[in-house]
């Protein structure tokens, strides 16, 4: 199992992703944004950071990097793609996922551990049961997920809401739990097919016990298990 980790100018979480995947026993390779070939990878991860300095909008320029045409093709063929934080922003800009990430409603950069509730979804990247709670750090300034009411209804009906911000016990406060103003407390979504997954929290920072929690491990192991099953 090999994860390909795309590196854009301004990415800064690619080494964390590689460390997490290696820690779990997976192979990894870095893919430069200017490349036009993904190489032999089983799954692609777009890491966090500030690609192209977040100029114009977060992810707006990265979306047109040469490698992104290949990422789109890979995703359309059913290849698993996960975008973390800035990677999520890039996936929405590339229209691989619906909606957009707006500036945090509180105007502050947020950086803290965050309980997340796993929802029942089509997402191929997670095999945790519905209602499971994971504690994973968030670290962003533009994580306020927005989509219109029609898109939200479609996400709900299609099992595309993968993760929601929640209380430590998994419940949701009446006033909402999103630390950034995200609509319907959405922290992560997938496409209809379930192979493209975007999330604001950083599972790679919750894999090595050194960082305090290992709740992020399933975000790497589930897809590896699924691909192994498919390969027979």
């Amino acid at each position: 199992m090999r994860f390909g980790v795309v590196v854009f100018p301004g990415s800064n979480c690619e080494q964390d992703v590689v460390h997490a995947a290696n820690h779990l026993g997976f192979e990894t390779s870095y893919i430069w944004h200017g490349d036009t070939d993904l190489g032999h990878v089983d799954a692609v991860i777009l890491p966090g950071g500030f690609s192209y300095g977040d100029y114009i909008r977060c992810g707006a320029v990265a979306r047109f990097s040469p490698i992104m045409a290949e990422v789109v093709r890979f995703a359309e063929r059913g290849g698993p793609v996960m975008g973390i934080c800035n990677g999520f922003q890039i996936l929405t800009e590339a229209h691989l996922l619906p909606g957009a990430l707006l500036r945090n409603s509180g105007l502050k950069f947020i950086c803290h551990g965050q309980p997340l509730r796993v929802e029942r979804s089509a997402c191929e990247w997670l095999d945790l049961p519905e209602g499971a709670v994971v504690d994973i750090p968030v670290n962003h300034n533009e994580g306020n997920y927005y989509c219109d009411a029609e898109t939200l209804a479609r996400l709900q009906a299609g099992g595309q809401i993968v993760l929601r911000y929640c209380e430590p016990d998994g419940s949701r406060a009446a006033a909402g739990n999103a630390p950034n103003g995200a609509v319907d407390d959405i922290a992560g979504i997938c496409n209809e097919r379930g192979n493209v997954f975007g999330l604001m929290p950083h599972p790679e920072r919750a894999v090595d016990p050194l960082t305090g929690t290992t709740d992020g491990a399933p975000f790497f192991t589930a897809i590896a298990k699924r691909l192994a099953e498919v390969a027979g």
Partner: peptide, 8 residues
Amino acid sequence: RLLANPVI
């Protein structure tokens, strides 16, 4: 295509 995001 680039300068504005028609979604928002």
